[in-house]
Design a protein around this nucleic acid. Sequence first.
DNA 1: GTTTACGCATCCCCG
DNA 2: ATGCGTAAAC
Length: 707
Amino acid sequence: MRRELEFLKELNSAQLEVVKSVEGPLLVIAGAGSGKTRTLTCRMAYLVAQGVSPQKILLLTFTRKAAREMVERAGSLLKIDCSRIMGGTFHSVSQYMLRFYGHLIGYPANFTILDRSDAEDLLHLLRNSLGLAEKKKRFPRKNTLATIHSKLINQKKSLEEVLSKEYPQFLDYFEEIERLFIEYRNYKKEHYLMDYDDLLLNWLEVLKNFPQVREEVGQRFEFLMVDEYQDTNSLQGEIIKYMAERHQNVMVVGDDSQSIYGFRGADYRNIFEFPKIFKNTKIIKLEENYRSTQPILDLANAVISNARIKYTKVLYTKKKEGEKPIVFYARDEAESSKFVADRILELTEKGIKLSQIAVLFRSAFHSFDLEVELAKRDIPFVKFGGMKLLESAHVKDFLSILKISTNPLDFLSWNRVLLLLEGIGPRTAEKIINKLKGSTQLLFDPSTIISQFSSLKELQKFALLLKELQKQGEKTLFEKLSAIWEFYEPIFQRVYYEDYHRREKDIEGLIALSQKYESAEEFLADLALEPVETDEVEKKFDKEEYLTLSTVHSAKGLEWHTVFVISLVDGRFPSSYSINNEEELEEERRLFYVAITRARERLYLIVPTTVYVPGEGKVLAKPSRFLKEIPPSLMKVYSEEKKESPSIKEGAKETQAEFKPGDLVKHPHFGEGEVIEVLDSEKIKVFFPRKGPTILHLKYTHLEKLM
DNA sequence: GTTTACGCATCCCCG
DNA sequence: ATGCGTAAAC
């Protein structure tokens, strides 16, 4: 074997076959933890080693981050630069292609992308201008409208079908909603806007109608690879069909039992359609699991065996030894949180790093109680799957100003910004926008219009700012954003006076980020396609050890030594939204399967017997139906007695007596510090240079005494 | 006539 | 925490 291909030795025979089958259509069914990412990475490296030029390879993944990481790893396997492999999501690649080919269907190269809340705002605006808001009976809210519209597109259903099946309460408004949606599509087309769905829809339209484009794209990308194929929708399936038409060199990887995005139109049946679209498809299954121990896999297999559809594979492992998954029945959420925190501290004392532990839950808000408990005990954590930075109001305000300067026809942003200014409400904003629309000079000088509203001082300032920003070529993006911030800061302090300090950091982070970009257009497109994590998250990433809290959806593809799944009660997991629908309930079961298969060595399942429901207070909850389906022999119930086991008590006692004020100590997360005060037998106050004064519970903290 | 301030219900998962 | 309607303030 050639030396540069050493990395192939790491693979098992099925994986090796995947890597070496480079030509023709290939379908890989890859179970959880079967080394799918490694196989994909090696396949890319192998292609390049065979002399395929990196830019001929296209890798489609679920997030852009995943694509970047895989490309990087392929490069390091070969020690050849592979960065010219094009990788991204369907949305980002469609966007890229549409910048070139969009003109064929009437879009200029500088079209604007609407993110989810932009789309909602537009629907809201159109709803008002159509006079639909004044109806007596409740008209769907903008959030719901956006969801319905997206379902139509992604599931290729009619409005009638979606309404009668999922929103029968709005059937009375069928005609109004239909009219609104037509307006919505027209508006987007007229103003060169695309929402997320349009990116796929329009790229597909180009491919469908222009054989020449299919030909060119086939030449540009000779090898296609698609990850997470079970979570693609039919539009994405069709896009692949056309992009691979010329050469048929297309490989897709997926796992039908891990399909968890049906709610947004994904259809795992794409996997089974694939061999029908591409004749002579080779099918390879990866069934050996390298991640989890046998007891954890047994549980996972039991969960999935209860599914209505029987899946195609059964996972096995060579790691036969291991502890049975543990179930804990907590009185309430407080006890659940306490339990989780206790176990986590035990684990860290045994040397398991915090970064090797995760707590998973169905919905972002299920972890609220736990977050408070973790903060109390100074256990650092990062939460995934919550609100994204870009969705917060202040960031949207800020970016809207930049958007106006790039595209003065972006009346959505105009509306948003105008409403922020002193003395302008919905009526005045509408008046100003109407004047702007009527002006042909708009592109060059909106300030002539604005000067008609001379009584509005802040508006005048805004006009000056725009004039500044439009001096093309003279300012870098960074300078533009700094100028915008100078204008926006006082408004910002007025509108968000309660917590503007916290929010300020987001803006600073954004301005810092902008230095990586050449143009405002590029910056904005990137932000729309790939929401940035908050500044805080980034910091914790490289500095400290941290615990992961995550929704199951955001945990896809990841793994930890120990995994806790919390809030396992009916109505939460499975979610109450899915309980009356068999299809959706099946998806919840797969979601539970995904959660379980994230664990390598240890798995805890936590069932609170009461949960807090807003408005009703604490209510009794039924344990999740998924737990009841599992043979009890596959799990161990955690008992109270064990919690009070002597070893832990002794450990606590030992530490208690040791400290007095003035002692120098070392904490696993905060580093060295000095004891200031002993509060009682369990609590001491320590000053850490890195953190400041901190109260520690000795029972849960491992403090090393330095002198 | 408009804007703004305040109290009220609602809130899943995501590119 | 956000989005809505209503009532007070400009």
